[in-house]
Write a protein that binds this DNA or RNA. Sequence first.
DNA 1: ATGAAAGCGCTAACAA
DNA 2: TTGTTAGCGCTTTCAT
Lengths: 351, 351
Amino acid sequence: MGGILHDTNKPTGAVRPVRVEDVAREAGVSPITVSRALSSPAKVRPETRQRVADAVARTGYVVNSIASTLRSGRSSIVTAFVASLQNPHFASAMQGTVDAFEGSRYHLMFAQTGYSEELRADVVESVLPFRPAGILFTGVVRNEDTRVALKRLGVPVVEMWGDRPDPIDMLVGSSAFEGGRLMGEHFGRQGLRRIAYCGHTLDRGAERLTGFRAGLGPFGLAPGLVLPYEGTRTFGEGMSAIDHILAALPGCDAIFFGTDLLAVGALLRARQLGIDVPGQLAVAGYGDLDFAEHIDPALTSIRVSDYEMGRDAGAMLLKRLMGQRIEQPIVLLPVQLMARVSTQRHAGARE
Amino acid sequence: MGGILHDTNKPTGAVRPVRVEDVAREAGVSPITVSRALSSPAKVRPETRQRVADAVARTGYVVNSIASTLRSGRSSIVTAFVASLQNPHFASAMQGTVDAFEGSRYHLMFAQTGYSEELRADVVESVLPFRPAGILFTGVVRNEDTRVALKRLGVPVVEMWGDRPDPIDMLVGSSAFEGGRLMGEHFGRQGLRRIAYCGHTLDRGAERLTGFRAGLGPFGLAPGLVLPYEGTRTFGEGMSAIDHILAALPGCDAIFFGTDLLAVGALLRARQLGIDVPGQLAVAGYGDLDFAEHIDPALTSIRVSDYEMGRDAGAMLLKRLMGQRIEQPIVLLPVQLMARVSTQRHAGARE
DNA sequence: ATGAAAGCGCTAACAA
DNA sequence: TTGTTAGCGCTTTCAT
């Protein structure tokens, strides 16, 4: 006996939802007892609890979270804003967040904010009516008005990826500067000289580039070319990028790409052109997607702990939601240089 | 002047939400007029509407969707169940769904059902309390009890990917049989003889395999080896798979992998082993991930319209939610053979 | 075009 | 341990 009369392929099929009242009548108790039996079983005598359980099973009752949330004021929705679920870094992070909330009483509601990595204010506003218990951003909120509005909301907020010192509330990020710096240092150590950067140059891209310069500096080096690629990054773009770079910076012997996808495109194109990587040209990416270590030549990249970031952000938010104090509301996860063949300049590599 | 008193880093910061009543007082009208001014502006005199708008701005009012939904009975939440957001096919589909609902009054709430592609009944149950207006499954619901429960719910449901004739309600899928058949036919035409299949062999994998056999049949061919790989598919697994296959089926000259990831792993391993692809061994995948056409050799695969599937499923659900009748509640999107170099057996390829 | 009263379904607060 | 009463914030229904 189902909870609702069946009525398929009609505009709205639902006809007669079962309410606590129905269950209460069936079990011979009062509505509040049903409520308690379901949400705080300990407060109800086992025998009564069983009667309620039977009545629930017989009627097919399902609580109405809407009514429950309204009355109790305790929302169980946590909203996660993601720029794009198609971005594998964000997808990994969201996996981590999902895992962090697994088993909790909270439900993740994803809202996609658009293809670009910017978080649109209207998208944020559109979920506030749901009064989420907490909010997660896969990224940093750039719009100042939105930041202020979120602070005013008084709801726990976690931002990710960034490393600004003034988060809206909490932050689990990683340092793009440090990632760039590690790569600059690596390039310097490998003895690379005519160096190009290709990728994002705004926001985190700018930080990465600054770090890259900082890493190259001690070797007396600096990028001879910076080619901004602000859009979404694809293999195809990486393939064309390498042509532009070689034309604009003749004798270029190393390229640092802002994403692994661009870098892989470049590797493919280099092979087409008969350019030896890393013999003639070193290529590195950023993000260390899973294919980076598997392609040929294996791609040097910077590993950012995507999954861990999402998981830790979720855990931090959950802790706060459970009323615990967060000692350290700003956490930076380590970035790591994954030095592989694509930038290797060792014995005989120059042929 | 914010809508809520500020109280950062407290268990729950929210202190004093603004209600319609507050706005009404501010605007000198009744609560219901505020409600109308916001949800059906046409029913309110422009002048009054303006007064309300000003009052809203001054107070920072944000409707409470929870209360609104409870009273009106019109939920604006659509739940999308996804096995894993890390699966790029599902991520693309969800992008399509997001796009389909863009601009509508509905909000997508994603629920992840687990690493495997099976949809757990308890996960489905956990969102029913939210009384979603509609439900989407990135996949087909296998559990019969869950199917029955969903039918009883009387809520519009769209399943994806599958091609069963008895959907819970609506279905936008593609034929795994046809995908397999196309590849079998292609293998036959290419003159391949010692053929292996490696990948999922259950559910859709079984259909794919049946189709593969059907495609090979007319050429007097059949798979000489079927190597089941039911888990998540990674490059690494593809790399090891090829060793197993060559040992178990000596002289094997073609492998059809159930996913592109496995196939790419095999390509990498083949290169390590000095096996010429496609000269000695033809390799094909399934799914046509974006890197398939870019790797070397370009990977033959079956393209499934992931994005379109998600988009069409979303559009179908939306249409139904808006009260329109669905003429064709079962739609199968085409699968397409993407014949590329990795299976090419032309002049001199055999060397 | 606007308002008054009522109630969506549930649970907090207060009894008993 | 169980029940009674009231009300979360909004919008439906029915007036005016």
